[in-house]
Design a binder for these strands. Structure first.
Lengths: 192, 192
DNA sequence: CACGCAATCTAATCACTGTCAAGATTGTGC
DNA sequence: GCACAATCTTGACAGTGATTAGATTGCGTG
């Protein structure tokens, strides 16, 4: 009979870096970052425990890479929300999509903001939000706002959205059956 | 000459539980929770590496205890701010003291909110804030607010304060030379 | 006061972790 | 076709949380 093809594992994985990141994202989404280990990811990728270190200097550098991926997804979610909304309600829509992003992936929030260095001014989601906010605020107030005022208002709105996102993950704080409308109401109670 | 008193270490520490928590607070404040280990704390307390487990079921339970201590300090800071302020600006003052508390202990913020289970409704600082907010809002709007509206406004304000606290820890986001006035301005831009 | 129990501690050990060094394998450009 | 660099394995090390068995001791009860 036909000899069983015994799937010879090649010495080189070929796509280890990406697979590790994917598996990392998946693991964090399911179980959180606390119990994540490089060895488990290596084994799950069918590779020895030291192999990952050919691609990442250390665990921290690996988590940085994972963080970058999540950040990118978040930015895309915001941009997608931007495309879909008219100018009047765009800031509300951006806020909603921010909250919903983390409501759908609660452990991402934990992971992302539990890590040390996030420099807000180079944090792409905030950069994008800032740009949109600047334009919108100027139009709403017929261009009579100073740069400083705009920055203050933007930071405050962002802080609110960020805080609401945290609460959306918690039981009973926000009505999650109707998250969309709920967030809208909450954000509307802020004067901009 | 007088024989050196060779400080015989007693078999029982006598105050281990408290010392561990104190050392834990100190360590987290200095270096953050990531590199904290039960063994290091045990050694620093002059005790074997298994001794802590007579007082705490596991590391997580220990961190819970540390968390409780920080939460208590935060609540006291809020209460103290409440005592010192008149009714008109009390919500602003509570917000300021919340932000300043974490500005002075940035790693506490990381630690506190990176951990999983914080149930907002049994989180003492929020409980206190809620009570104060309920009274204040009713007075401001001459008692014409529903319970639901009050809860929504309270959550939004708290979310903003919480978000601002996070930004206050970051370089360059908020003018930290004049944190007090800065926070006041930011919070005042919210309509309540 | 003495006895015994329960609280607290030590020593030894386990499985697991991040990380490194030395060497094996292999793709790739000259 | 050959050398080099990238990638991977094996084996090791120190540090970690946690458990077990047994040592020490404070304290309440008789």
């Amino acid at each position: 009979m036909c000899a069983k093809k015994t799937e010879v594992k090649p010495y080189h994985h070929g796509n280890l870096k990406e697979e590790l990141i994917d598996k990392g994202l998946e693991y964090i989404d399911k179980y959180g970052v606390e119990s994540l280990s490089m060895r488990k990811l290596a084994e799950a990728s069918g590779v020895s425990s030291a192999a990952p270190y050919a691609h990442f200097k250390n665990k921290d550098a690996f988590l940085d890479a994972v963080q970058d991926h999540i950040t990118e997804s978040l930015t895309e979610a915001l941009k997608s929300a931007y495309e879909k909304s008219g100018e009047r309600e765009v800031l509300i829509e951006l806020g909603k999509s921010y909250v919903i992003f983390f409501y759908e992936n609660p452990l991402y929030y934990q992971f992302l903001f539990a890590r040390r260095s996030i420099d807000i001014d180079t944090f792409p989601p905030f950069q994008f939000y800032s740009e949109v906010a600047a334009v919108t605020l100027k139009n709403m107030h017929s261009k009579r706002l100073t740069k400083e005022t705009i920055r203050k208002k933007t930071i405050t709105m962002w802080a609110t959205v960020h805080g609401l996102a945290r609460f959306a993950l918690m039981d009973g704080v926000i009505d999650t059956d109707n998250l969309d409308k709920e967030i809208e109401q909450l954000l509307c109670s802020i004067e901009v």
